[in-house]
């Protein structure tokens, strides 16, 4: 029983964590929190099911195409909902533009795909359904890949360092001659890939369901809020803890009370430590 809760908790937590990272990657490049983060996760599941189950593609091709499409959706977010409002003096316009785009994506999928959850194909047929099933460890694996991949990217590649420079100080980076706009688009593509990966890896767990977008939007945001804006390590740890906490609450209280418990913890932590538990850079106001 403990193993079952831990496995499902870590699996779902890994998905939350990756959506949290998706938020962060977009935020680092543009100082924008985008409502499309959760929708990217939803698209990962829906597109995976569409490519492999409906169109009958081989799993690996479907996987690559899903990530490519999600990267595209990320870039689309940047072009449609972020770039036009970045220059605006109004700090919060991005909340509205990304909310609008997120709603459009969600409604479009609801109408064109289905309002009912659809099956997601089994990929490796490994684990036979128990706590060791692929539906549990695939998200965990994907989360690991994301962590290692980001580490390698940020520490050992030039592009990665440029990302960090942009995240650290936008103006300085531009002054150094970094192609800020291209780097921002690349960041959004990267965010798309991470979100898509989260959705694809959790396809069997969450099914290909349009409403997952809204769900992941919220539960993916909680790790960001707890871990501190832009803090990937904080997001990963908080995400995993959240997943386990939620499953444990599900087990102990069940149903509605688990959601209430998650929400209560979220609000209390947020009010007590608006910068998150792991800290985020303070912003100058004047």
């Amino acid at each position: 029983m403990f193993v079952a809760i831990m496995m499902s908790g870590l699996a779902i937590g890994a998905v939350y964590a990756m959506i949290g990272v998706t938020y962060n990657v977009m935020f680092s490049a543009s100082r924008v929190m985008s409502f499309t983060a959760g929708q990217l996760g939803m698209l990962g599941g829906v597109l995976g099911a569409a490519f492999i189950d409906v169109l009958g593609m081989p799993a690996i091709l479907g996987f690559v195409l899903t990530l490519a499409a999600c990267a595209l959706a990320g870039v689309l977010t940047e072009i449609v909902a972020v770039r036009p409002v970045l220059k605006s003096l109004e700090q919060h316009l991005y909340v509205l533009s990304t909310l609008a785009l997120a709603l459009m994506i969600q409604q479009f999928v609801a109408i064109q795909w289905s309002t009912e959850p659809q099956p997601f194909p089994r990929l490796l047929d490994f684990g036979g359904g128990g706590p060791g099933d692929e539906k549990f460890w695939l998200p965990i694996l994907a989360c690991l890949v994301t962590v290692v991949g980001l580490e390698v990217l940020y520490r050992h590649t030039l592009v990665g360092r440029a990302f960090l420079a942009i995240a650290e100080d936008n103006f300085a980076a531009r002054a150094l001659g970094l192609p800020e706009r291209n780097l921002r688009m690349a960041s959004y593509a990267l965010a798309g890939v991470i979100g898509g990966l989260a959705g694809f890896a959790s396809g069997q767990l969450l099914l290909a369901f349009f409403a997952n977008g809204a769900l992941l939007n919220f539960y993916g945001f909680v790790p960001v809020a707890l871990g501190g804006l832009g803090n990937n390590r904080g997001a990963i740890i908080s995400g995993l803890v959240l997943g386990v906490f939620q499953q444990a609450a599900n087990f102990t209280f069940g149903g509605v009370f688990a959601s209430v418990a998650v929400f209560a913890v979220f609000i209390v932590v947020l009010l007590a430590a608006p910068q998150g538990l792991f800290g985020a850079p303070a912003q100058r106001r004047v």
Binding site: S202, L205, A211, V256, A258
Partner: peptide
């Protein structure tokens, strides 16, 4: 909750 990913508990 119908969206709960795992009903093992």
């Amino acid at each position: 909750d119908a969206t709960q990913p795992d009903v093992t508990p």
